Computed example of a mutant assay.
Amino acid sequence: MASNDRELGVQTRDLTRSFGDRTILDDITLTIPPGQFVALLGRSGSGKSTLLRALAGLDHDVNGSGSLRVPSKTFVVFQDSRLLPWQRVLANVLFGQPRSRRAAATALLGEVGLAGRERAWPNELSGGEQQRVALARALVGEPDLLLADEPFGALDALTRIRMHELLRDLVRRHTPAVLLVTHDVDEAITLAERVLVLDAGRLTVDLPIELRGDRDPGDPEFQRIRRTLLTALGVVPAGV
Protein backbone atom coordinates (compact mmCIF):
# COMPACT_ATOMS: atom_id res chain seq x y z
CA MET A 1 0.00 0.00 0.00
CA ALA A 2 1.27 3.48 -0.84
CA SER A 3 -0.06 6.83 0.25
CA ASN A 4 1.15 10.43 0.13
CA ASP A 5 1.87 12.74 3.04
CA ARG A 6 4.10 15.74 2.59
CA GLU A 7 4.35 16.61 6.29
CA LEU A 8 5.69 13.21 7.38
CA GLY A 9 8.29 12.79 4.64
CA VAL A 10 9.08 9.14 3.83
CA GLN A 11 7.75 6.33 5.97
CA THR A 12 7.96 2.61 5.28
CA ARG A 13 6.93 -0.20 7.58
CA ASP A 14 7.75 -3.88 7.05
CA LEU A 15 8.36 -3.16 3.36
CA THR A 16 9.09 -6.34 1.42
CA ARG A 17 9.80 -6.83 -2.26
CA SER A 18 10.55 -10.11 -4.01
CA PHE A 19 11.11 -11.55 -7.46
CA GLY A 20 9.80 -15.10 -7.53
CA ASP A 21 11.32 -16.93 -4.58
CA ARG A 22 14.04 -14.33 -4.07
CA THR A 23 13.46 -11.65 -1.42
CA ILE A 24 15.15 -8.37 -2.38
CA LEU A 25 13.85 -6.12 0.42
CA ASP A 26 13.17 -7.79 3.75
CA ASP A 27 10.91 -5.93 6.22
CA ILE A 28 12.35 -2.45 5.68
CA THR A 29 11.11 0.06 8.25
CA LEU A 30 12.43 3.54 7.55
CA THR A 31 11.57 7.16 8.23
CA ILE A 32 13.13 10.11 6.38
CA PRO A 33 11.94 13.44 7.82
CA PRO A 34 11.17 16.35 5.50
CA GLY A 35 14.35 18.06 4.32
CA GLN A 36 16.80 15.38 5.47
CA PHE A 37 19.64 14.27 3.16
CA VAL A 38 20.16 10.51 3.41
CA ALA A 39 22.70 8.38 1.54
CA LEU A 40 22.12 4.67 0.94
CA LEU A 41 25.12 2.36 0.57
CA GLY A 42 25.24 -1.33 -0.22
CA ARG A 43 27.04 -3.90 -2.29
CA SER A 44 25.72 -4.82 -5.73
CA GLY A 45 22.53 -6.83 -5.38
CA SER A 46 21.81 -5.59 -1.86
CA GLY A 47 18.48 -4.04 -2.90
CA LYS A 48 19.40 -0.34 -3.13
CA SER A 49 17.83 0.31 -6.51
CA THR A 50 14.81 -1.81 -5.61
CA LEU A 51 14.18 0.39 -2.57
CA LEU A 52 14.56 3.54 -4.64
CA ARG A 53 12.18 2.19 -7.28
CA ALA A 54 9.65 1.32 -4.57
CA LEU A 55 9.80 4.87 -3.19
CA ALA A 56 9.47 6.23 -6.73
CA GLY A 57 6.44 4.05 -7.46
CA LEU A 58 8.27 2.28 -10.31
CA ASP A 59 8.15 -1.32 -9.06
CA HIS A 60 4.74 -2.47 -10.23
CA ASP A 61 6.17 -5.72 -11.67
CA VAL A 62 7.32 -7.20 -8.33
CA ASN A 63 5.62 -8.92 -5.42
CA GLY A 64 5.45 -6.74 -2.33
CA SER A 65 3.92 -6.14 1.06
CA GLY A 66 4.12 -3.64 3.88
CA SER A 67 3.23 0.04 3.95
CA LEU A 68 4.88 2.89 2.10
CA ARG A 69 4.23 6.62 2.29
CA VAL A 70 6.06 9.22 0.20
CA PRO A 71 5.36 12.86 -0.68
CA SER A 72 3.24 13.33 -3.79
CA LYS A 73 5.94 15.61 -5.26
CA THR A 74 8.71 13.04 -5.71
CA PHE A 75 11.24 13.20 -8.55
CA VAL A 76 14.09 10.92 -9.61
CA VAL A 77 17.56 11.60 -11.02
CA PHE A 78 19.29 8.61 -12.62
CA GLN A 79 22.93 7.89 -13.50
CA ASP A 80 22.00 8.51 -17.13
CA SER A 81 20.60 12.03 -17.52
CA ARG A 82 17.77 10.64 -19.70
CA LEU A 83 17.38 13.88 -21.62
CA LEU A 84 15.19 13.83 -24.70
CA PRO A 85 17.62 14.27 -27.61
CA TRP A 86 14.94 15.86 -29.84
CA GLN A 87 14.18 18.58 -27.28
CA ARG A 88 16.33 21.59 -26.43
CA VAL A 89 17.65 22.13 -22.92
CA LEU A 90 14.83 24.36 -21.66
CA ALA A 91 12.18 22.00 -23.05
CA ASN A 92 13.89 19.11 -21.27
CA VAL A 93 13.77 20.95 -17.96
CA LEU A 94 10.07 21.71 -18.51
CA PHE A 95 9.18 18.17 -19.56
CA GLY A 96 6.01 17.16 -17.71
CA GLN A 97 5.56 20.64 -16.23
CA PRO A 98 3.03 23.36 -17.12
CA ARG A 99 4.24 26.27 -19.21
CA SER A 100 3.76 28.48 -16.15
CA ARG A 101 7.00 26.94 -14.81
CA ARG A 102 9.04 28.38 -17.69
CA ALA A 103 10.50 31.23 -15.63
CA ALA A 104 11.36 28.81 -12.82
CA ALA A 105 13.05 26.48 -15.32
CA THR A 106 15.12 29.33 -16.74
CA ALA A 107 16.13 30.39 -13.22
CA LEU A 108 17.14 26.83 -12.34
CA LEU A 109 19.36 26.62 -15.41
CA GLY A 110 21.12 29.65 -14.01
CA GLU A 111 21.45 27.95 -10.62
CA VAL A 112 23.10 24.90 -12.18
CA GLY A 113 25.52 27.03 -14.19
CA LEU A 114 23.83 26.77 -17.60
CA ALA A 115 22.41 30.27 -18.04
CA GLY A 116 22.25 31.09 -21.74
CA ARG A 117 22.16 27.43 -22.79
CA GLU A 118 18.37 27.16 -22.93
CA ARG A 119 18.32 26.49 -26.69
CA ALA A 120 21.25 24.09 -26.77
CA TRP A 121 20.67 20.47 -27.81
CA PRO A 122 21.59 17.71 -25.30
CA ASN A 123 24.31 16.36 -27.60
CA GLU A 124 26.05 19.74 -27.42
CA LEU A 125 26.55 19.32 -23.66
CA SER A 126 29.20 17.42 -21.72
CA GLY A 127 28.18 14.57 -19.42
CA GLY A 128 28.41 16.83 -16.39
CA GLU A 129 26.31 19.51 -18.10
CA GLN A 130 23.66 16.94 -19.00
CA GLN A 131 23.43 15.91 -15.34
CA ARG A 132 23.04 19.58 -14.42
CA VAL A 133 20.04 19.74 -16.74
CA ALA A 134 18.67 16.57 -15.13
CA LEU A 135 18.98 18.18 -11.67
CA ALA A 136 17.19 21.30 -12.90
CA ARG A 137 14.41 19.14 -14.37
CA ALA A 138 14.04 17.26 -11.07
CA LEU A 139 13.85 20.46 -9.03
CA VAL A 140 11.62 22.61 -11.25
CA GLY A 141 8.53 20.90 -9.84
CA GLU A 142 9.58 21.90 -6.30
CA PRO A 143 9.83 18.33 -5.00
CA ASP A 144 9.45 17.35 -1.38
CA LEU A 145 11.52 14.22 -2.08
CA LEU A 146 14.44 13.88 -4.49
CA LEU A 147 15.55 10.33 -5.27
CA ALA A 148 19.02 10.08 -6.84
CA ASP A 149 20.26 6.75 -8.20
CA GLU A 150 24.07 7.11 -8.50
CA PRO A 151 23.67 10.37 -10.44
CA PHE A 152 27.43 11.04 -10.60
CA GLY A 153 28.64 7.48 -11.17
CA ALA A 154 29.51 8.01 -14.84
CA LEU A 155 31.41 11.29 -14.33
CA ASP A 156 35.15 11.83 -13.97
CA ALA A 157 36.58 12.57 -10.52
CA LEU A 158 36.95 16.35 -10.95
CA THR A 159 33.44 16.75 -12.37
CA ARG A 160 32.06 14.68 -9.50
CA ILE A 161 33.61 17.03 -6.94
CA ARG A 162 32.01 20.00 -8.68
CA MET A 163 28.67 18.20 -8.82
CA HIS A 164 28.86 17.45 -5.10
CA GLU A 165 29.25 21.16 -4.40
CA LEU A 166 26.37 21.96 -6.74
CA LEU A 167 24.04 19.36 -5.22
CA ARG A 168 24.76 20.58 -1.68
CA ASP A 169 23.95 24.13 -2.76
CA LEU A 170 20.75 23.14 -4.58
CA VAL A 171 19.48 21.08 -1.64
CA ARG A 172 20.22 23.96 0.72
CA ARG A 173 18.16 26.33 -1.49
CA HIS A 174 15.26 24.07 -2.36
CA THR A 175 15.11 21.93 0.83
CA PRO A 176 13.78 18.61 -0.48
CA ALA A 177 14.35 15.42 1.44
CA VAL A 178 16.98 13.44 -0.49
CA LEU A 179 17.73 9.74 -0.79
CA LEU A 180 21.02 9.29 -2.65
CA VAL A 181 21.92 5.75 -3.73
CA THR A 182 25.67 5.41 -4.15
CA HIS A 183 28.53 2.89 -4.08
CA ASP A 184 30.96 5.62 -3.00
CA VAL A 185 31.51 5.80 0.77
CA ASP A 186 33.35 9.12 0.55
CA GLU A 187 30.51 10.60 -1.51
CA ALA A 188 27.99 9.48 1.10
CA ILE A 189 29.96 11.03 3.98
CA THR A 190 30.64 14.23 2.03
CA LEU A 191 27.00 14.89 1.16
CA ALA A 192 24.64 13.27 3.64
CA GLU A 193 23.33 14.03 7.12
CA ARG A 194 22.68 10.32 7.63
CA VAL A 195 24.02 7.17 5.98
CA LEU A 196 22.20 3.84 5.69
CA VAL A 197 23.75 0.51 4.74
CA LEU A 198 21.59 -2.12 3.05
CA ASP A 199 22.82 -5.71 3.15
CA ALA A 200 20.90 -8.65 1.67
CA GLY A 201 17.70 -6.63 1.73
CA ARG A 202 17.98 -5.47 5.35
CA LEU A 203 19.08 -2.14 6.80
CA THR A 204 22.12 -2.96 8.95
CA VAL A 205 23.49 0.55 9.64
CA ASP A 206 21.74 3.86 10.29
CA LEU A 207 24.48 6.37 11.05
CA PRO A 208 24.06 10.13 11.61
CA ILE A 209 26.86 12.24 10.10
CA GLU A 210 27.63 15.13 12.42
CA LEU A 211 30.63 16.64 10.61
CA ARG A 212 30.39 20.42 10.27
CA GLY A 213 31.46 22.78 7.50
CA ASP A 214 33.61 21.49 4.65
CA ARG A 215 34.01 17.75 5.08
CA ASP A 216 37.72 17.07 4.77
CA PRO A 217 38.61 13.41 4.04
CA GLY A 218 41.78 14.02 6.03
CA ASP A 219 39.77 14.76 9.18
CA PRO A 220 40.20 11.91 11.72
CA GLU A 221 36.43 11.84 12.34
CA PHE A 222 35.78 11.53 8.59
CA GLN A 223 38.20 8.60 8.51
CA ARG A 224 36.57 6.97 11.55
CA ILE A 225 33.15 7.15 9.89
CA ARG A 226 34.64 5.88 6.66
CA ARG A 227 36.15 2.84 8.37
CA THR A 228 32.86 2.11 10.15
CA LEU A 229 30.98 2.09 6.85
CA LEU A 230 33.63 0.10 4.98
CA THR A 231 33.55 -2.49 7.76
CA ALA A 232 29.75 -2.70 7.49
CA LEU A 233 30.14 -3.21 3.74
CA GLY A 234 32.67 -6.01 4.28
CA VAL A 235 35.51 -4.09 2.64
CA VAL A 236 37.56 -3.71 5.85
CA PRO A 237 37.56 -6.68 8.28
CA ALA A 238 36.19 -5.82 11.72
CA GLY A 239 38.94 -4.97 14.21
CA VAL A 240 41.53 -4.07 11.56
Rank of each mutant, 00 (worst) to 15 (best):
L51C: 13
E193S: 13
L167Y: 13
W86E: 06
D169P: 00
A154S: 15
R226E: 10
T231E: 13
G64E: 15
G128L: 00
L94D: 04
L166M: 12
V10E: 09
V185C: 08
F75S: 14
E7H: 10
H174V: 06
V178C: 13
R82F: 02
R162I: 04
K48E: 09
R226K: 04
D144W: 02
R224T: 12
A154L: 04
V236E: 09
R202M: 08
P143S: 06
A54M: 15
P217R: 07
A2G: 03
E150T: 05
L196H: 08
N4I: 00
T204G: 03
S46V: 13
S67N: 15
V171T: 06
A148S: 08
L52P: 13
A148M: 15
A136Q: 09
L51K: 08
E165N: 06
R215C: 12
L196V: 09
L135Y: 10
A154H: 10
L203M: 15
M1G: 15
E165P: 08
T159W: 03
V140N: 00
R22L: 11
A148V: 00
E150N: 03
P237H: 05
P151K: 01
W86F: 09
S65N: 12
Q97I: 02
L203K: 12
L40T: 09
V240N: 05
T50I: 14
G66P: 08
L58E: 10
Q130C: 10
S44E: 05
P33W: 03
E124S: 00
M163S: 07
P237C: 05
R99C: 00
V77I: 14
G201C: 10
A56I: 12
W121R: 00
L68D: 07
G9L: 04
L167Q: 12
H183M: 14
D184W: 11
R22Y: 13
Q36L: 05
V112R: 01
V205P: 03
E210L: 11
Q11A: 12
L68A: 12
Q131R: 02
R202F: 05
N63P: 02
V240D: 11
E187V: 09
G64R: 13
E193L: 02
L114Y: 00
H174D: 06
G128M: 04
L84F: 14
G47F: 10
L146K: 04
G96W: 07
A177V: 08
T16R: 13
R224P: 01
T228R: 15
V89Q: 00
P220H: 06
G64L: 14
E129F: 01
R194C: 12
L211G: 08
F75Y: 14
F95C: 01
E124P: 01
A107M: 11
E118K: 07
D80L: 05
M1W: 06
N123C: 01
A138C: 06
H174E: 07
R226P: 02
E118C: 00
A200W: 12
L15M: 07
V185Q: 08
S81G: 08
N92W: 04
G218K: 07
M163N: 08
A103G: 01
S18Q: 15
V38A: 09
A103W: 02
K48R: 14
G234K: 09
A136G: 06
A104M: 07
